[in-house]
């Protein structure tokens, strides 16, 4: 069971890596961003960590994180320009499907809950499976094509930006603190601090 869970999670991480790759490509293409190369590299490195990190040595993974930190230190990472949403599309879709637009959100919540509660797969797999099912549901409802899925994925990842990856880095900081012998309690307190204010 544990192997199965780990393999599913690994597939999810690779998928997240592909999201980051999309963010990298679109950051590079964003001519209005003066630090577009740095920002693109920033996302590309995270894409590498999530897609290939499993098979790289942890020393190399650590070195990649150091490069990311250097990009951040020298202010080479900026959100850049994110294309505005078309109000008309929103109005038309709402007119067509009305409150069914909430269905994917409800799917996401309920399915994640059911999987966590009634299977042995655990909460993490639950969130991932629910996310994918609700995405398919949203696609069918809104008739969004692959291009829109790509556009919205890179848009959301870029606008969440480095704040989205921060919780994981704080948890990593906690690991380093523990390895260095700083009290475990401090480490936990710090990693929990920012955790979920970011995603809303």
């Amino acid at each position: 069971m544990d192997t199965l869970i780990n393999n599913i999670l690994l597939a999810f991480y690779i998928l997240i890596g592909l999201f980051f790759l999309a963010a990298a490509i679109e950051s590079w293409r964003d001519q209005s961003n003066p630090v577009r190369w740095g920002t693109g590299l920033f996302w590309l490195l995270f894409a590498i960590l999530f897609c290939c990190g499993q098979w790289l040595s942890n020393t190399i993974n650590g070195a990649i994180i150091i490069i990311i930190a250097l990009l951040s230190l020298f202010k080479q990472v900026r959100v850049g320009h994110i294309r505005d949403l078309d109000e008309k599309v929103a109005q038309q879709t709402v007119k067509r499907i009305g409150n069914w637009i909430f269905l994917p959100s409800i799917f996401l919540a309920v399915l994640a809950l059911l999987i966590a509660q009634f299977t042995n797969l655990g909460g993490q797999v639950g969130i991932g499976v629910a996310a994918i099912v609700s995405l398919i549901c949203a696609q069918i409802l809104t008739k969004a094509n692959v291009k829109i899925v790509y556009e919205d994925t890179q848009r959301m990842v870029r606008s969440v930006g480095s704040a989205g990856i921060l919780p994981q880095l704080l948890a990593t900081l906690g690991v380093v603190f523990t390895a260095s012998g700083v009290g475990q309690v401090t480490a936990k307190a710090i990693s929990g601090l920012f955790l979920l204010e970011i995603i809303c």
């Binding site: 999670l9 999810f12 998928l15 997240i16 999201f19 999530f50 949403l85 078309d86 599309v89 929103a90 109005q91 879709t93 709402v94 637009i101 994917p104 959100s105 996401l108 993490q124 969130i127 991932g128 996310a131 994918i132 609700s134 995405l135 949203a138 696609q139 409802l141 809104t142 969004a144 829109i148 899925v149 919205d152 994925t153 848009r155 959301m156 990842v157 969440v160 989205g164 990856i165 919780p167 994981q168 948890a171 955790l195 995603i199």
Partner: peptide, 18 residues
């Protein structure tokens, strides 16, 4: 910790569509 990224495409599409 970063699994929530998987939910972003859905939220993005729903946001675009109202």
């Amino acid at each position: 910790v970063s699994l929530f990224f998987l939910t972003l495409p859905t939220i993005g599409i729903l946001e675009r569509h109202g």
